[in-house]
Amino acid sequence: MNIIVIGASTGGPKALRSLFEFLPRLDAAIVLVQHMPRFLNESFRRVLAERTLMDVSLAEPGQMLEHGVVFVAPSEFHLVLNDNRRIDLVRGVKVNYVCSSVDVTMLSLRPRGEDSFLGIILTGMAADGADGIRHIKNLGGLTFVQNQMTAAVYDMPHSALLTGAVDFEGSPKAIRERLVEKFGCIQTVSSPAAESTPGVEGG
């Protein structure tokens, strides 16, 4: 299984809008941790779903990862991957001052068969996700961060960069292009993007 974990905080919704704009149905599962107030979870999911051909789901306990699907971590829970497949939601103490924590999700990944991993850190304050990026690199995965020019707050990408474990730094758009190049697409029956014409945002 191909597993992508994306972490974002302050400024994340705009970066993610750019990253997900016209994103095809990737041959990979995406787990997305965006620090945000709980009441925005569902509208955040809907806004993302309007941008991409991937299914976008607010993660629920017991869900199994699936290629072509984005699983959004609900606020006030840490999203933990059991055996790289099953989603557990843990209502625990804050880690890096937040719950959901990017690090908690990334650090729950384990070596397993031919699973491949990719970690992405986007705009945000402080250092959540840096330990996770190092972990993903140690698992043999790829690691991307948002560049300073496009990040509303560069601290999180910069902290990840300082681990020395980052493979690529670029705009959300450039990251999207790399994802498509790396994982390719699943054939889809319907094409929501062809039915509507969402605005294009530079990244």
Binding site: G11, G12, K14, M36, M125, A126, D155
Partner: peptide, 18 residues
Amino acid sequence: ISPSAELETLKDDVLDYV
């Protein structure tokens, strides 16, 4: 250019930074 460290404890409450 860079927000105060105080933002760290309020990350869930601040969605963007202009």
